[in-house]
Design a protein around this nucleic acid. Structure first.
Lengths: 237, 237
DNA sequence: TCAACCCTCCCCATAAATGGGGAGGGCGAA
DNA sequence: TTCGCCCTCCCCATTTATGGGGAGGGTTGA
């Protein structure tokens, strides 16, 4: 374990408030000698959480222009589990190239590395560092530091969860095996009739399971029940 | 970075097939001196993927008895982002205590440490090690090795994705902002009428967005469209 | 200039979901 | 023994979703 990592993790360990976490962005940028660092979580206790070294004007502009919808970094983070080098993203469209040049004008580095992070209940965060460097230098830098950033990004997220008091929902009781089956099949698009056929039960019976699952999950309708079950990870599509 | 970690990651780096990955379980167990190691992914290219040192009879029994529904390790992994020490799980019910004793009889260690892993599209995996040790010894062991296991579990998952040719779905086009809005609101349980009211559009217009989103996602109905959007991480509940 | 897409709105008819009610057998824990 | 839950099944009436059809204005990129 590098001394930089050890030092930073010790610092992170003693960090407990949202403000302190936010301040760590500057420390990480300086410790690791990159142009920018950012951590953006979208669903901590229902709120976004940002800790970044970006120019606040860039952050505001990014939000005003709804750039999250076209940012290839965000798209890549949604699609992949593995960390992403910005070079491997799709910058081919005019819009994304213009976005990139705007970002650079606001001080964002031309090379970037992003680690997608996912938690329960649709929690998602994106940890990124960026810098100005040539390809070979950046590849070498990432080769040397990828493990550090993998650890830092995950422990940072753990701290963000704690600092924002994000806890897992406990309301509702566990679903029965049949209730899970029903929601699973409905979640992959089958009709109630088809699900009943597959499970060899009547639609009336299936209806009882749907209603019971809705009640246990506190769902307002079937779509909501399926959505909650997916978010909880008890079913998948 | 410890020599053990470095050695294991180098080994992992040259591993590319499902069989080789499965074999790494024994190597990890021996390298780190634990009783058992297991990696279980539920949704790689639509199939489960297991690499573990458990007695195959235990694995079969676990599946036959549907223990995934009562295993506190699984429940904890669904609910939390942070790694879990098995001591912090809820073993209070008679069923879970009996399950635990059965597991021990089959050679599972009494102390355990689990790292939940989540990818896009509802991908989920559970990485766990377990051993027989007293509390203090186990705590010290985990204190020394938590960073190693955090890295190993994530790189292992990356390799499992590659070995199983698990790729992100590309079908369908991006959803428009309004389509995303509509699915988001429907996913948190609002009725079509209420969503139309909130977005200040008519239900007829909302219907067009629902139908368009269904078409783009290849969804069979509205519930399915919401489920796919959630799995893709473009909306959240 | 044209095509594709986004955003907006409407209609008819049918199928499905939901609100709300009823029922019984079996199993396990207190 | 009793209670709570799981699994199973049924009914009526109303509301909502869906199949399938129509329409127009604006913007952007080839």
């Amino acid at each position: 374990m590098t001394r930089k990592l050890e030092t930073f993790l010790e610092r992170l360990e003693t960090t407990n408030t949202v403000d302190d976490l936010s301040s760590l962005a500057d420390i990480l940028r300086d410790t690791y000698g990159v142009k920018n660092m950012s951590y953006l979580a979208t669903n901590l206790n229902g709120l976004p959480f940002v800790s970044s070294t970006y120019d606040p004007k860039w952050a505001q502009h990014y939000e005003d222009q709804n750039y999250m919808l076209i940012d290839p970094v965000v798209r890549g983070a949604l699609l992949q589990f593995n960390p992403l080098d910005w070079k491997q993203l799709d910058w081919s469209s005019k819009r994304t190239r213009e976005f990139f040049h705007e970002a650079v004008d606001f001080g964002v580095g031309r090379q970037g590395y992003t680690i997608p992070i996912r938690g329960p209940n649709g929690q998602a965060a994106i940890f990124a560092i960026n810098h100005d460097s040539n390809d070979a230098g950046w590849d070498r830098y990432i080769g040397e530091h990828a493990h550090d950033f993998m650890l830092i990004s995950h422990y940072f997220h753990q701290k963000a969860l704690a600092a924002t008091h994000t806890t897992e929902p406990i309301e509702g009781r566990d679903l029965s095996p049949r209730e899970l089956d029903v929601l699973k099949y409905l979640g992959i698009g089958l009709s109630r009739g088809k699900v009943a056929e597959i499970l060899k039960i009547s639609e009336h019976t299936l209806r009882v399971y749907v209603d019971s699952a809705r009640y246990k999950l506190g769902a307002l309708n079937t779509t909501h029940a399926v959505a909650i079950a997916l978010a909880r990870g008890v079913i998948a599509v």
